[in-house]
Measured scan of single mutants.
Amino acid sequence: MFYPNSPQTSPQLTQIPYGQQYAMMQRQIQQPYHPFATTEPQARLYPYHYQGPIQQEQGGFITQQSTAASPQYVQMRVTPVDQSIMSGYPNQTANGSSSSSFNYNIHPQQQQQQQQQQQQLRHHAMPVGSVPLQDDRYRKQLIVNYLAPDVTSTDLHELFSRFGELDGARIIYDKQTNMSKGYGFVYFCHAEDAKEAVERMSGYEFHGKWLKVGYSTNPLNIVPSNSSPYVHAGSRGAAG
């Protein structure tokens, strides 16, 4: 039997160049792979992502010199942007860049009308829970959420009447099932009393439920100042 490094198959040491006398086997001759043993700084910083320098080929596509990437890492192929796409944008300079302001050559009167329309939209648009300043009635009506099913309009009136005089209180019921929808409205005579009720009743436990109280901004629920107070009856038909 002959071994790869046996004296019968191995040459004389004098015939082997210096430095390879003890590297006779194939696994010894093959050098191990060192990912950080390279002179390129990109490979030292990113050993798993770097795959060699990027070269520009004919046709405008950018390719990489090395083989496919590892399945664990996804390499994105980048193509140059066609400058003709950006030619339609206004205020574009000769080098292809555009300024931040756009001039669509709008007539001054049209621009003024658009600004007025935007101001009107901001004036009428009102986020949930906010209180408008032009109508004091919005500051007097509250919406009470997360009410228990057994709470009546009379219970709601008695709960909030300790903060001040009320114009009314009612629970909203479903017309088909005649069941409470879980929320109601309270109408105060003074805005200061309503503000105190919002601050003190939010998070209050009532009939096993934690109440959420806020201003009601729905104009359909506003009680006119010259109208008669609501009837605080315990029956659902009268309260709904």
Score class of each variant (00 low, 15 high):
residue 145 N to I: 01
residue 158 E to H: 09
residue 5 N to K: 14
residue 161 S to V: 11
residue 155 D to S: 13
residue 175 K to S: 12
residue 92 Q to A: 12
residue 195 K to W: 15
residue 74 V to D: 09
residue 228 S to K: 14
residue 179 M to Y: 15
residue 207 H to D: 01
residue 87 S to Y: 03
residue 191 A to W: 15
residue 117 Q to G: 10
residue 137 R to A: 04
residue 65 Q to W: 03
residue 193 D to V: 06
residue 58 Q to P: 07
residue 28 Q to I: 02
residue 216 S to A: 01
residue 167 D to K: 01
residue 153 S to C: 04
residue 50 Y to K: 15
residue 162 R to N: 12
residue 147 L to A: 02
residue 212 K to G: 05
residue 150 D to E: 11
residue 42 Q to T: 12
residue 13 L to K: 15
residue 225 S to T: 13
residue 229 P to Q: 12
residue 98 S to A: 08
residue 118 Q to H: 13
residue 67 T to D: 08
residue 38 T to P: 14
residue 111 Q to L: 09
residue 146 Y to I: 00
residue 137 R to Q: 03
residue 220 L to E: 01
residue 217 T to Q: 02
residue 163 F to V: 03
residue 226 N to Y: 10
residue 182 G to P: 00
residue 5 N to H: 08
residue 124 H to C: 11
residue 189 C to D: 03
residue 137 R to F: 03
residue 207 H to K: 11
residue 198 V to H: 07
residue 23 A to G: 10
residue 122 R to P: 04
residue 230 Y to W: 03
residue 209 K to I: 00
residue 126 M to L: 09
residue 60 G to C: 13
residue 233 A to F: 15
residue 76 M to L: 04
residue 56 Q to K: 12
residue 19 G to R: 13
residue 191 A to E: 13
residue 235 S to Q: 08
residue 196 E to K: 13
residue 14 T to H: 07
residue 140 K to C: 04
residue 116 Q to N: 11
residue 168 G to M: 01
residue 114 Q to R: 13
residue 160 F to A: 02
residue 167 D to Y: 10
residue 14 T to K: 15
residue 77 R to N: 03
residue 68 A to W: 03
residue 202 S to M: 11
residue 68 A to R: 14
residue 16 I to W: 05
residue 165 E to S: 14
residue 208 G to Y: 15
residue 203 G to Q: 02
residue 21 Q to M: 03
residue 26 Q to Y: 02
residue 18 Y to H: 13
residue 85 I to F: 10
residue 41 P to G: 12
residue 142 L to V: 11
residue 140 K to A: 02
residue 222 I to N: 03
residue 89 Y to H: 07
residue 47 P to M: 02
residue 210 W to K: 02
residue 40 E to S: 12
residue 74 V to F: 09
residue 60 G to D: 05
residue 4 P to D: 05
residue 12 Q to C: 11
residue 2 F to S: 13
residue 112 Q to C: 09
residue 234 G to E: 12
residue 77 R to L: 02
residue 86 M to V: 09
residue 93 T to M: 13
residue 198 V to K: 10
residue 226 N to R: 05
residue 73 Y to V: 12
residue 14 T to I: 02
residue 175 K to G: 11
residue 129 G to F: 06
residue 65 Q to R: 15
residue 100 S to I: 04
residue 174 D to W: 09
residue 145 N to W: 00
residue 63 T to F: 03
residue 60 G to T: 09
residue 211 L to W: 00
residue 181 K to S: 02
residue 21 Q to D: 08
residue 19 G to P: 10
residue 79 T to L: 04
residue 115 Q to Y: 05
residue 214 G to V: 01
residue 136 D to E: 09
residue 210 W to Y: 05
residue 119 Q to T: 11
residue 69 A to S: 08
residue 240 G to M: 04
residue 162 R to E: 05
residue 150 D to C: 13
residue 67 T to V: 08
residue 200 R to A: 04
residue 39 T to V: 08
residue 141 Q to T: 00
residue 105 N to V: 03
residue 6 S to N: 10
residue 47 P to W: 00
residue 217 T to V: 05
residue 85 I to Q: 11
residue 55 Q to T: 10
residue 93 T to Q: 11
residue 147 L to H: 02
residue 38 T to I: 07
residue 124 H to P: 11
residue 76 M to H: 14
residue 3 Y to K: 15
residue 147 L to R: 01
residue 20 Q to F: 03
residue 161 S to K: 05
residue 135 D to W: 04
residue 186 V to L: 03
residue 205 E to D: 09
residue 73 Y to S: 15
residue 182 G to F: 01
residue 17 P to Y: 04
residue 140 K to M: 03
residue 168 G to A: 02
residue 125 A to L: 11
residue 23 A to L: 03
residue 135 D to H: 06
residue 58 Q to Y: 11
residue 163 F to R: 00
residue 164 G to A: 01
residue 190 H to Q: 04
residue 152 T to L: 05
residue 70 S to D: 05
residue 96 G to F: 07
residue 53 P to D: 12
residue 161 S to W: 15
residue 55 Q to Y: 04
residue 74 V to N: 15
residue 73 Y to A: 13
residue 86 M to L: 09
residue 167 D to V: 02
residue 19 G to F: 03
residue 236 R to Y: 02
residue 51 Q to Y: 04
residue 156 L to R: 00
residue 212 K to M: 06
residue 67 T to H: 11
residue 6 S to V: 09
residue 43 A to P: 08
residue 229 P to S: 07
residue 105 N to H: 08
residue 24 M to R: 15
residue 42 Q to S: 11
residue 134 Q to N: 08
residue 172 I to Q: 00
residue 39 T to R: 13
residue 187 Y to N: 00
residue 66 S to N: 10
residue 152 T to V: 09
residue 213 V to A: 09
residue 83 Q to S: 09
residue 212 K to S: 04
residue 69 A to Y: 11
residue 46 Y to G: 13
residue 96 G to C: 11
residue 144 V to R: 01
residue 238 A to L: 10
residue 219 P to T: 03
residue 116 Q to Y: 12
residue 113 Q to I: 07
residue 142 L to S: 00
residue 90 P to N: 11
residue 5 N to P: 09
residue 31 Q to D: 08
residue 218 N to F: 00
residue 219 P to E: 00
residue 8 Q to A: 09
residue 240 G to P: 05
residue 73 Y to P: 15
residue 239 A to F: 14
residue 129 G to M: 04
residue 31 Q to H: 08
residue 97 S to W: 09
residue 184 G to A: 01
residue 159 L to F: 01
residue 164 G to P: 00
residue 5 N to W: 02
residue 106 I to E: 04
residue 77 R to W: 00
residue 206 F to E: 00
residue 156 L to W: 01
residue 35 P to F: 03
residue 125 A to Q: 04
residue 153 S to F: 15
residue 202 S to C: 15
residue 18 Y to F: 08
residue 212 K to Q: 04
residue 29 I to A: 15
residue 240 G to E: 03
residue 235 S to N: 11
residue 6 S to R: 14
residue 160 F to Y: 00
residue 186 V to A: 15
residue 109 Q to G: 09
residue 203 G to H: 03
residue 228 S to I: 07
residue 141 Q to A: 00
residue 212 K to P: 00
residue 32 P to L: 03
